[in-house]
């Protein structure tokens, strides 16, 4: 059971990493236009002014 001493901090660290990543995405505005982004990827013309 000693391995728990490593695994639990490791899982918490990974979880926090995910949380931090989510905050970063929120700040970058990646949830501002979900519908538009979903459709933009299907366009034929090249998007040469990507947002951000």
């Amino acid at each position: 059971m000693d391995v728990l001493g490593i695994l639990i901090p490791a899982s918490l660290f990974l979880g926090l990493l995910g949380l931090g990543f989510f905050f970063w995405m929120l700040k970058r505005g990646q949830f501002d236009d979900p519908d538009g982004d979903a459709h933009r990827i299907l366009r034929d013309d090249y998007d040469d002014t990507p947002k951000g």
Binding site: D33, D35, G36, T49
Partner: peptide, 9 residues
């Protein structure tokens, strides 16, 4: 100079 559509809004 720039036009950006937001489909969600």
């Amino acid at each position: 100079s720039d036009a950006r559509v937001n489909l969600t809004l």
